[in-house]
Amino acid sequence: MSQSFSTKDVADHSTVENGLYIIIDGEVYGMADFVDEHPGGSKILKRVGGKDASKQFWKYHNESVLKKYAPKLKIGKVKEEAKL
């Protein structure tokens, strides 16, 4: 069963030292172990750490990339948060 994260939980993991989580289409990915393997370099992953990176991801990748890496990197999903 996958874990649920608030956007604050993800934001708290904005550096490699803290786990480096990113959000893509509501799913949370742990990137700390992948950051040095990323073909586009570590800089971009560090820049979007702790944030929703959907827009940046889809600008440079297609669905096959997500299918290839999701089993290894996906750690959960963003839980619904109450709207005030």
Rank of each mutant, 00 (worst) to 15 (best):
E17M: 06
N18W: 05
N18H: 10
N18Q: 12
N18T: 13
G19V: 02
L20C: 05
Y21N: 04
I24A: 01
I24T: 02
D25M: 06
D25V: 07
G26P: 05
G26V: 08
G26I: 05
G26C: 12
E27N: 14
V28P: 00
Y29L: 03
A32G: 03
D33G: 09
F34V: 01
F34L: 02
D36Y: 06
P39I: 02
G40N: 04
G40Q: 05
G40S: 04
G40Y: 02
G41W: 07
S42G: 13
S42V: 10
S42Y: 09
K43I: 02
L45Q: 02
L45E: 03
K46D: 08
R47P: 00
V48N: 14
V48Y: 15
G49H: 06
G50W: 01
G50I: 04
K51D: 09
D52L: 10
A53L: 08
A53V: 08
K55T: 14
K55L: 14
K59W: 10
H61Y: 10
N62G: 15
S64F: 13
V65P: 07
V65C: 08
K68H: 14
K68V: 10
K68N: 11
A70S: 15
A70T: 08
A70Q: 13
P71K: 07
P71G: 08
P71N: 08
K72S: 12
L73D: 00
K74V: 01
K74Y: 01
